[in-house]
Simulated assay, not measured.
Amino acid sequence: MTANPILLQKKYCRVIERFAKQQGLSLDAALSFFYHSEVYQLIRDGVSDMHCMSDAYLVEELVQEDSQNKE
């Protein structure tokens, strides 16, 4: 299933802002991390309807991915 591109852009914005706030990152750093993340690729490619998941869920996935990258 594919999502409306405008709605996806709004979702990306909300997720990036929430991720930045939760992790204490600048918006630029959060934006860069998001667009290079596996989470973004899954949403973009429509895998498992990731775009239907809540913003909080997607942020948690980003946090987990970030912590795995730091190990």
Rank of each mutant, 00 (worst) to 15 (best):
C13Q: 14
T2K: 15
S37G: 02
D55S: 06
D28R: 14
R18P: 03
P5D: 12
S37M: 02
N4E: 15
C13V: 04
R18E: 14
A3E: 14
L8C: 07
Q22Y: 11
Y57N: 04
K10H: 10
G24Y: 07
L58R: 00
L62M: 02
Y12L: 04
S37C: 02
G46C: 10
M53E: 11
L25M: 13
K10Y: 04
L31G: 15
V63L: 03
V59A: 00
L7C: 08
S48C: 13
L42K: 14
E60Y: 01
S48K: 12
E60G: 00
L58A: 01
K70Y: 06
V59C: 00
V63P: 02
T2V: 12
L8W: 06
Y35N: 04
Q41H: 15
N69C: 08
E38R: 15
S54G: 12
A29R: 15
L62C: 01
K11H: 05
Y57P: 02
L7T: 08
K21T: 11
K11N: 03
I43F: 03
M1L: 08
V15H: 02
L7Y: 13
K21I: 05
M50I: 05
V59W: 00
L31T: 15
V47S: 10
M1H: 12
A3P: 07
V63N: 02
C52W: 07
A3K: 14
Q22M: 05
Y40I: 03
N69P: 04
E38L: 10
Q68T: 06
Q68I: 15
F33V: 03
V15R: 00
V15C: 01
M53G: 04
L62P: 01
K70P: 04
V39N: 00
S67Y: 13
K70D: 06
D28E: 14
S48Y: 12
C52I: 09
F34C: 02
A30G: 07
G46A: 14
L31R: 14
H51Y: 15
L8S: 05
S54W: 01
V15W: 01
E65R: 01
A30P: 05
L42Y: 12
D66C: 09
D28S: 13
V47G: 04
M1D: 08
A29L: 10
C52P: 03
E71H: 10
E17N: 13
Y57S: 05
F34V: 02
S54R: 06
Q41M: 07
E38T: 13
R18G: 03
D45S: 15
V15T: 01
A3V: 12
Q41A: 12
L31M: 09
Q9P: 04
K70C: 08
E61V: 01
A20E: 05
N69F: 08
L31P: 05
L8R: 06
Y35E: 05
L62A: 00
D49P: 04
N4K: 14
S67M: 13
L31Y: 12
Q68Y: 11
V15Q: 00
Y40M: 04
R14S: 09
K11F: 03
G24Q: 07
